[in-house]
Design a protein around this nucleic acid. Structure first.
Lengths: 136, 136
DNA sequence: CTTTTTACCTATCAAGTCAATAGGTTTTTT
DNA sequence: AAAAAACCTATTGACTTGATAGGTAAAAAG
């Protein structure tokens, strides 16, 4: 299950992608348009800024804007950043302690395939794709 | 993320599928072989029995056994039963209250596609497939 | 140089889920 | 009557989720 953190982040990125890329959009505006709690969004945007997916500017005329063109963001990187991992089972996470049952686990190959499928899916969709409706 | 409930259930079903289908296998044996807490497995097996994926028999010589051949179980039905749902986002769950943003949500089509992909994947793999190593 | 606007930061919270444990009851066979 | 096994109800600690509260720092406008 993708949590609200990932889904909201994606919606924010899309919101910004649909704005004039020249100016900064304040959080209030995004929150109002997306109908998401401003304070909660703040936490999400913080992560996006810290990881340079967005840039924030303070003071009047400030707000947030993208650091790249919409075509240069994949849905996968946004979701992975917010969710921590997209791995479906514990033993396939980056930091997973190697399970001693791995050699005899007959479900592991299936989980691996599934993992690859998810990765391929999300890392081949860009914000631009979504905006252009290439998934409707 | 698939939780241990789903993963353990799958392992138990595979364990039973690999036993002589004639007799009943006691919980103790399964728990020992799979190295999973007996008490915790009890909860999982209860659900499987209640939904007729397994049948349980009490008393000496009792235990659990499959109600169908391994080829007649899909991984999808086992996981969906244990996890409640395989839906990746809240708005695609069975009991989801219809989100008023649906008509304008540009991420929804993507989630739908993803959902279908997951469904297709898991509902086309049977226990027999895993046992025969058709996923290694 | 003060006010306004805005992002940024730290802490906290209630509700829920997850994985597991504990202890007892019922059924069946020996 | 005893043993073996499933079945049942309740409880727990740790963690996550989604959110709120209140304050600080920077930038622009007047």
């Amino acid at each position: 299950m993708i949590s609200t953190r990932g889904r909201y982040a994606l919606r924010v990125m899309l919101d910004l992608a649909q704005q004039n890329s020249g100016h900064y959009t304040p959080l209030d505006e995004i929150a109002a348009r997306q109908e998401i709690s401003k304070k909660y969004l703040e936490i999400i945007l913080k992560t996006l800024v810290q990881n340079r997916l967005l840039v924030g500017l303070r003071g009047k005329g400030g707000g947030y804007k993208l650091t790249r063109t919409p075509a240069e963001y994949t849905v996968g990187e946004i979701l992975e950043l917010m969710e921590g991992t997209l791995a479906v089972v514990a033993c396939l996470q980056n930091d997973a302690e190697s399970c001693k049952r791995n050699p005899i686990c007959i479900t592991l190959p299936m989980w691996k395939r599934f993992d690859e499928m998810i990765h391929d899916f999300f890392f081949h969709i860009t914000l631009e794709d979504l905006i252009q409706g290439r998934y409707s």
